[in-house]
Design a protein around this nucleic acid. Structure first.
Length: 485
RNA sequence: GGCCCCGUCGUCCAGCGGCCUAGGACGCCGGCCUUUCAAGCCGGUAACGCGGGUUCGAAUCCCGUCGGGGCUACCA
């Protein structure tokens, strides 16, 4: 049987890295086993769902290199793959379940429920629904329904009972029905709850493997019971370990960026995020950290997924991104990816000839950045007419004695250079410090700050060469006059 | 509180009864290289939560305990 997997984000927020990781594992499994990967949008919560969130979630998935064979936007045999378009179907199933007495109408009002919950808690009983309407005589139910009384539909969990299933990552798991109440499947406004909609979709779409976060492990017996009541085959479940923040809690905004788009904006490569996320709860094998999508597909299996939670570590992601930037991207590839970030930083689009003017220093920048967003700041001295002096650099380097002489010497020497190239500039400046009898550090740092505005920059001679003689001399002159004033 | 899940360096992962005086990666610390910053190279730091079993032998199996997390809605 062809495996069919899905990820079902709710468009009530941006693409969370936890959702992205779940999507990734489902995708990897589907690709590994020649299965079908589906993206479905769980938008039953119409209050909080928006098309904009949906758009950005799908964009994020695509950006990460996760594609889908069936689902929202790409289509397939099951409509538009949005739950909002299937309410009739959910109501139909709920009706069927009521007919089979696997579900029942409940007329208890929210205030009543709240009151009874409070009482139960005080008395030390479980706070869930007490099942009052489950035993309502048929004629009363009919009368109240016909009278148009507000009601929900609850699932009638088999009692006494127990749901036992084998989770791929956790082994056998069992839940006694005593601790699960008769949960709502259809709200009073006729909309389905997550439990119903998700289960019906998994059944209708013939999902074979449900891999999702461990946070819904306690809901799984409900889904299994609905599935059984529908007389449908049960999918295999795999509950993925949760992603935690540094403080050990479920990963959330307070731990920093949680949405994939934010990582994109910060200049992470999708390949790096993909690689990093796949390593959270899974391993491709001993001694391997960096690997391609294809290699992951070749090796992945849900049975190898670990069952303990993983802390999301931005520092390691950042390291890995640097690794990808310098070792897994050609110079041209790097230039192409860096350009939009650089333009964003400068607040303007760059003419080709200007961007091409960076071609010599760009490879040097490539080996020293960890994020694409760092490229702009490193290149600003080349791309902006005016430079801004970093105050700390200025103070550290330019306020030292002898700087004036160095700059004066550099101006004089460099203005005599006819053939303005990296090598000639280097030779000239090396001759200069020899002549002045000063160290490289003492001689080169003032020139660096004068020309780039910062004590941290790409290599000096290449930078000077790329800047051009005229601009270089101009900046040295400007800096010198700034010192004396 | 109840139910469920989890427990190897600070973090991610390897280990699935002897190959472990526990391995790799990130981080951190030190050194080399060096015009800055990186990168690179070399070295170091650091863990099987605890207590009982089972076994000739346990990080690996069992039980307990402690600790962490999740769920406990007409959210998903």
């Amino acid at each position: 049987m062809t495996p069919r997997l899905r990820v079902a984000p709710s468009p009530t927020g941006l693409l969370h890295v936890g959702t992205a990781r779940a999507a990734l594992f489902n995708w990897l499994f589907a690709r590994r086993h020649g299965g079908v990967f589906i993206v479905r949008v769980d938008d039953t919560d119409q209050r909080r769902s928006t098309p904009e969130f949906e758009r950005r979630i799908l964009e994020g998935l695509r950006w990460m290199g996760i594609d889908w064979d069936e689902g929202v936007e790409v289509g397939g045999p099951h409509g538009n793959y949005r739950q909002s378009g299937r309410f009739e179907r959910y109501r139909e199933v709920a009706g069927l379940l009521v007919e089979k007495r696997a579900a029942y109408r409940c007329y208890c009002s929210p205030p009543e429920l709240a009151e009874r919950r409070k009482q139960a808690q005080r008395a030390g009983r479980p706070p869930g629904y007490d099942g009052r309407c489950r035993s309502m005589p048929a004629d009363e139910d009919q009368r109240r329904q016909e009278a148009g009384e507000s009601h929900v539909v609850r699932f009638a969990l088999p009692r006494p009972g127990m749901t036992v299933f084998t989770d791929v990552v956790r082994g056998e798991v069992r839940f006694d029905h005593q601790v699960i109440d008769d949960f709502v499947i259809l709200r009073s406004d006729g909309s389905p709850t997550y439990h119903l909609a998700s289960t019906v979709d998994d059944v209708d779409y013939r999902i074979t493997h449900v891999a999702r976060g461990e946070d819904i492990l306690p809901s799984t017996p409900r889904h299994i019971q609905i599935t059984r009541a529908m007389a449908a085959p049960e999918p295999t479940y795999a509950h993925l370990p949760l992603l935690h923040g540094q403080d050990g809690g479920k990963l959330s905004k307070r731990h920093g960026a949680t949405d994939v788009g934010e990582y994109r904006r910060q200049g992470f490569l999708p390949e790096a995020l993909f690689n990093y996320l796949s390593l959270l709860g899974w391993s491709i094998g001993p001694e391997r950290t960096i690997f391609s999508r294809e290699e992951a597909v070749e090796d992945f299996d849900l049975t190898d997924v670990s069952s303990s939670p993983a802390v999301f570590d931005p520092a390691k992601l950042t390291w890995m991104n640097g690794e990808y930037l310098r070792n897994h991207l050609s110079q041209a590839g790097f230039a192409e990816r860096a350009r939009p970030y650089t333009e964003e930083f400068l607040g303007q689009s760059l003419p080709d000839e200007m961007w091409d003017g960076c071609s010599e220093v760009l490879p040097l920048v490539q080996e020293r950045v960890k994020l694409l967003s760092e490229v702009g700041p490193q290149l600003a001295f080349l791309l902006s007419e005016r430079i801004e002096y970093d105050p700390r650099s200025w103070k550290k380097v330019m306020s030292k004695p002898g700087v004036d002489a160095v700059l004066t010497g550099a101006i004089a020497a460099l203005s005599r250079v006819e053939d303005w190239r990296t090598e000639s500039v280097e030779q000239t400046l090396r001759d200069l410090i020899a002549e002045l009898g000063i160290s490289a550090g003492k001689g080169f740092q003032p020139v660096r700050v004068a020309v780039t505005g910062s004590s941290i920059s790409p290599p000096l001679f290449e930078s000077l060469a790329a800047l051009g003689r005229k601009k270089a001399l101009q900046r040295l002159t400007d800096a010198r006059s700034r010192i004396s004033s």
